[in-house]
């Protein structure tokens, strides 16, 4: 049984603690920005900020999906592997004109949805722990991908894919606009819809949700599908950025997305979190990485700082033992 003090699902109205949680992170981000600005005059220039955000956008897309899964007490380790597999899938059309882009998107989203369906089915219907189900999916996708490519990178891509990744409309990166749309759509689903309330209910207390007429299995599977679809889209946007498709596109995103979500206050124990706060978590993570480089530290320092921050952030939000 969940302890009595488990907070009720809240889509509106916040307690004092939650205000502190939410704005604490923003204050931290602002402090980081100030430090960065003080240390490097180039940091706060629009060009650099836009660059940082362009790099952050695909990760943000993954985090939007990861938030859904963590809210129902899960996590998805297969997102990075899926990103790379979708990238390979995109090259499989061997398309050289932009006509193929819609087809690539449809195929990528359909493929991702199937992957999410399998993940969700394993977790909800087969009682496989999310960690193991998505770990297995990660390894399987990796094997399928390498078997298809033979381990070699490919680069047959429609030229328009590059525009998606690093192009701009009115000076704003296309992938940032896409991230904003994705976050708004899924943010409304999560924080303003009936389905969203059901997700919070299942996450905080599956039994109570069931007694209230919610089918936890269906909700959980839905969350995994959303997560995979977001990762698939993120993969396509990252792909164009890199240009050639290596078999490791998105490597590390599975852990970074979990780190960002946790920093953004999404509780690994489920039922607590906010998509937009999770995106602030992404911003913090990306700014820290950028800051390490600006300060002239060796890049390995990022790993150490990231490690300290992930533990510290989790301690801050008191993610209790499940």
């Amino acid at each position: 049984m969940a302890p009595l003090e488990t907070p009720l699902p809240r889509s509106r109205g916040m307690s004092v603690a939650s205000v502190f949680e939410r704005y604490g992170l923003i204050v931290f981000l602002l402090a980081l920005l100030l430090v960065a600005a003080a240390l490097s005059p180039t940091f706060l220039q629009p060009a650099n900020l836009v660059n940082v955000l362009t790099i952050a956008a695909p990760l943000g897309m993954v985090v939007v999906g990861q938030t859904f899964v963590i809210l129902v007490r899960g996590l998805d380790l297969s997102v990075a592997s899926l990103m790379a597999t979708v990238a390979v899938l995109a090259t499989a059309f061997k398309a050289t004109t932009n006509d193929a882009i819609p087809l690539i998107f449809v195929a990528a989203i359909a493929f991702s949805a199937v992957v999410g369906l399998v993940n969700g089915w394993l977790v909800a219907k087969r009682n496989v722990s999310p960690f193991l189900a998505t770990l297995a999916m990660m390894i399987i996708l990796q094997g399928v991908r390498f078997a298809y490519t033979g381990g070699a990178p490919i680069s047959t891509l429609p030229p328009g894919m590059g525009f998606l990744a690093s192009g701009r409309i009115l000076g704003i990166p296309v992938n940032l606009i896409t991230l904003a749309l994705l976050a708004i759509v899924f943010g409304v689903v999560l924080h303003r819809s009936r389905l969203g309330r059901e997700i919070f209910m299942v996450g905080s207390n599956p039994k109570a949700a069931f007694l209230n007429g919610v089918a936890p299995d269906r909700v959980i599977i839905f969350c995994y599908v959303i997560c995979s679809v977001c990762a698939g889209i993120g993969g396509l946007f990252l792909l164009g950025y890199v240009g050639t498709v290596s078999n490791w596109v998105g490597q590390g995103y599975e852990l970074d997305s979990i780190v960002a979500a946790v920093m953004g206050g999404v509780a690994l124990t489920g039922g607590r979190g906010n998509i937009f706060a999770a995106l602030v978590g992404v911003a913090v993570l990306v700014v820290i990485n950028n800051l390490v480089l600006l300060l002239g530290f060796p890049i390995e320092m990022q790993l150490i700082i990231k490690g300290i921050i992930i533990i510290g952030a989790a301690a801050f939000y008191r993610t209790r033992l499940a």
């Binding site: 996590l75 960690f131 852990l255 979990i258 780190v259 946790v262 690994l268 124990t269 390995e300 320092m301 990022q302 790993l303 150490i304 700082i305 990231k306 490690g307 300290i308 921050i309 992930i310 533990i311 989790a314 301690a315 008191r318 993610t319 209790r320 033992l321 499940a322």
Partner: peptide
């Protein structure tokens, strides 16, 4: 009182770095 997944992941990153 942090989930072991997070603690050991963070430690892993620190040790590797």
């Amino acid at each position: 009182r942090v989930h072991p997944l997070i603690v050991t992941l963070g430690m892993s990153s620190i040790i590797f770095g």
